[in-house]
């Protein structure tokens, strides 16, 4: 008995994403709503690839100004200074402060770009119907999903700093335009992750004959 043969999709069943109830559409009808919690039920997240691409491209576009524009505007008696994320990394880089610098570099620059690239890789894999390495790809997706919830930390730190450091007229910190783009990157990648349906990775193996044997033992 092959595992692939028993997917809910093949059996015409849907899981409610809200309450987990298994249901099936009425004969000859569309997917409809969950009979228990009245949530929309789908075999697969609707229009998943399109939506994910749209959010991902939006995030990729925002990623450019997020890194080029200053995220913080510091007003001190010295004058007004603006700092981009990369300038912050450079500023933090010192013989003792380098771990912090690396942390910022990873959290604020590498992780968003890695998320975008990983999702793009997953989408391309699904669209091209790649039938190998599905487990690795799903693991990648889980990591992306896991990291996603921490991505807003930068934005939180910035907004907290801006709210706390208001020592007019000596010093004040304001968020600058780059921060909005950075927040947009985080939100859009999270939406992209949300709209991606990891089951699609496995759907490429729906023709049982074409599936390699090892993949069937999930």
């Amino acid at each position: 008995m092959s595992a692939a043969a028993t997917t809910a999709l093949e059996m015409g069943l849907m899981t409610c994403e809200a309450c987990g109830l298994l249901s099936q559409p009425a004969a000859g009808e569309h997917e409809g709503r969950c009979p228990r919690c009245d949530e929309h039920v789908h075999f697969r997240k609707p229009d998943s690839i399109n939506r994910t691409w749209a959010f991902l491209i939006g995030a990729a576009i925002c990623y450019v100004p997020a890194n080029l524009l200053p995220v913080l505007k510091t007003t001190t008696a010295q004058g007004t200074d603006t700092d981009t994320i990369l300038q912050g990394v450079v500023l933090l880089w010192s013989p003792t402060g380098w771990p912090l610098s690396i942390l910022v570099l990873i959290a604020s620059i590498m992780i968003p770009s890695a998320k975008i690239l990983a999702l793009a890789y997953l989408l391309i894999g699904v669209q091209r119907g790649a039938k190998t390495g599905q487990r690795q790809r799903v693991r990648m997706f889980r990591i992306v999903q896991f990291i996603g919830r921490w991505s807003m930390v930068d934005v939180f730190v910035d907004t907290f700093t801006a709210a706390l450091v208001q020592l007019q007229p000596l010093m004040s910190i304001e968020p600058a335009s780059g921060l909005f783009f950075f927040a947009a990157v985080v939100v859009l990648t999270m939406l992209a992750v949300e709209s991606f349906d990891p089951r699609l990775i496995w759907d490429t193996s729906l023709e049982p004959a074409a599936l390699p044997m090892e993949a069937r033992h999930a």
Partner: peptide, 20 residues
């Protein structure tokens, strides 16, 4: 159980491209 049938939601799938 069968899902509750509702009229098909006419998707405006292109709308999502407003985001990028």
């Amino acid at each position: 159980p069968e899902s509750r049938t509702v009229p098909k939601h006419v998707g405006r799938n292109w709308a999502i491209w407003l985001v990028p």
